[in-house]
Design a binder for these strands. Sequence first.
RNA 1: GCGCGGCUAGCUCAAUUGGUAGAGCGCCACAUUGACGUUGUGGAUGUUAUAGGUUCAAGUCCUAUGUCGCGCACCA
Length: 726
Amino acid sequence: MHDKFLKPYDPQSTEKAIYKLWEDSGYFNPDNLPGERNETFSIVLPPPNVTGTLHMGSALMLVIEDIFVRYNRMQGKKTLWIPGTDSAAIATQSKVEKEILKKEKKSRHDLGREELLKRIDTFVEENKSTILSQIRSIGASVDWSRYAYTMDEPRYSAVMTAFIAMYNAGLIYRGNRIVNWDPKGQTTISDDEIVYEERKAHLYTFRYSKDFPIPISTTRPETKVGDTAVAVHPEDERYKQYVGKEFDVVFCDVPLHITVVADKSVDKDFGTGALGVTPAHSHIDWDIAKRHNLSRPQVINEYAKMMVEGRLKGLKTAEAREKVVAWLTEEGLLEKDEEVSQNISTAERTGGIVEPLPKLQWFIDVNKAFTIPHSEITGIASGSSVTLKDIMRQSVAGGDTHFLVERFEKTYTHWADNLRDWCISRQIWFGHRIPVWYKGDDIKVQVESPGEGWEQDPDVLDTWFSSGLWTFTTLGWPEKTEDLKRFHPTTIIESGYDILPFWIARMIMLSGFFLGQVPFKTIYLHGLIRDGQGRKISKSLGNNIDPVDMGAKYGTDAVRLSLIMGMAPGTDSRISEEKIRGYKNFANKIWNITRFILENTEGVIGTDVPVSQKTPADIAHLDACNKITAQVTEYIEKHRIDLAGDALYHYIWHELADNILEESKPILNGDDEKAKLSRQHTLYTILTASLKMLHPFMPFVTEEIWQSLPHKDTDVLMVAQWSNVR
RNA sequence: GCGCGGCUAGCUCAAUUGGUAGAGCGCCACAUUGACGUUGUGGAUGUUAUAGGUUCAAGUCCUAUGUCGCGCACCA
């Protein structure tokens, strides 16, 4: 027996060496796995922020995925797990900009595009090692030889190819539309990047002028200088007589031409039942104005300042609001001032209050029919006419990809049904630059400059556009690679449910468009990690428990187990230091079980004892062990690793240690040599079987033990055969 | 407004197609120099949020209510 078993298990001194052993073995790469492997298992790692650090959420993701990967590898499948990192464009750029502003008092415009991008690349290079070493430290058995970064060369050119293909298919268009403008970040953001905050606001009811017949209500009086109409419901008896009439008024120094229109989208019962239409600064108003052919003047600029002449000129919207209210009061036009609560749209990344603005942006049309050349999706025939929305719905409805937790299918379907065109251009510099060139009124869509005088679109693509291609750009697309053929669609995707619309849905959409395939067959969504009191983990609360620190303190295996125990798919779970400590005890328990068994089997292992020579008690123990193996297998196949872990924990602690080992003591110390030999072999067999089953959950301690076993069927536990004991 | 989820022991959570409500932590008692610094054995604690229904049988299915949380929409 190795001396190391005389001391308690020490994770710190072993984990790094164990990971190196795995990496050096080459077995992370499916091409190097031993034996004949026909079935495949493939999964992409949802790429963490390249300059970020590991938090409990990403640790949970890595652990869940690693368990599936290790299990399937041991099941004899050609198993691929692709690691990667994400540029997190807006977040990374603003981090670097902030740093430069602080240190050098310079803005990005002072530096210029090229210089800023250089600085960002340097920043990424300097910081990416943190996340990469943290992925290793958690024990993730990813294939580093296939590592991908969203901004690396292969991915960049794949993204360009994708954009151009969608443009040529007529699904990407440039349009002037109301977008969510973040005045703080100076960029457009998608609907999903908005966070709603409930605030108190005033709802003012007033008339444009003394002789204007219809009072209107608004929480944003300053936008009313951009009004071109008043909309009423077609069946509203109160206002029927005014429909079609036009009025000229001067509102707060601004001359307005107001047409009264009838539109079904107006709610008769809200406010006065009449809606002041501000086309340029409200989504629904824009649509109304479009339907009635009204002009759509912009009165607020990109810095959230007023663009009108008169007393409001150049004011911030909040100041302008006060001025307008003061003016209304002065003029005696204000009829009512109610306090209401309303949801304010703020930008997720910057916290800026979103200002709806009309802008020339690039969109993906989700409702436009196109001919899909090739489709393997059930219910969508090759050559048929579909929309991207159809693809999103049918991929799930047809069963090609399915949600492990059913309720997410409802969320997904609801989201897909209500989806509007996806605005994919962003006014930042870091990212995949839109491959479109302008010269006067001419437009060319290509990567390289068409020549002198052509200027490239300054915008970059929404980071989720490139992420949406992830399952296949990481496999070499647009080349028709072996990897792509063999590993796509991937077996499973695993991520937090919070990025279901951002990412999961986009992958389904884009994979369907480019490959006619679903990107993955199963969708496993995990919940959020909360602290011991059920609060969200956040910097401001200071309740962050660092997975790497915890790993150093209690061992990575303890962290892994504490993350997945009691974590049902899709539900939020909690983590606390006490829980982690509890599983450190378990790791040590396994260590001591091994010590006991090795001490008592020294010299006898290696020659097999046939079943016929085993005692009935031992045969029963082996049967029970097989039963647990079958149970654990079933749970993992059903993706219930929490239940599998629980079953293993109880078997090993309360059956193997508490019962079998206790019962063995008199036998091992007794005179019945036959019974003793039978028991010795049985214990050793159960030990190796247990180590195999535990390995996906606690890879470090099990591999460390395995390396010191006197007799084993494979050098590296990671590639041992998952099987029953007899 | 539309939708989704949680509510089970003091705390945190399980309970796979409806079939004796469990675990960890905590608590109480006893044992233990042990393979175990991190041990074992035994014990107490539940009208499964509330009310009704279906069923031989309901934590599980149905209806309503309460409560906490989340998503989407609205946000004139």
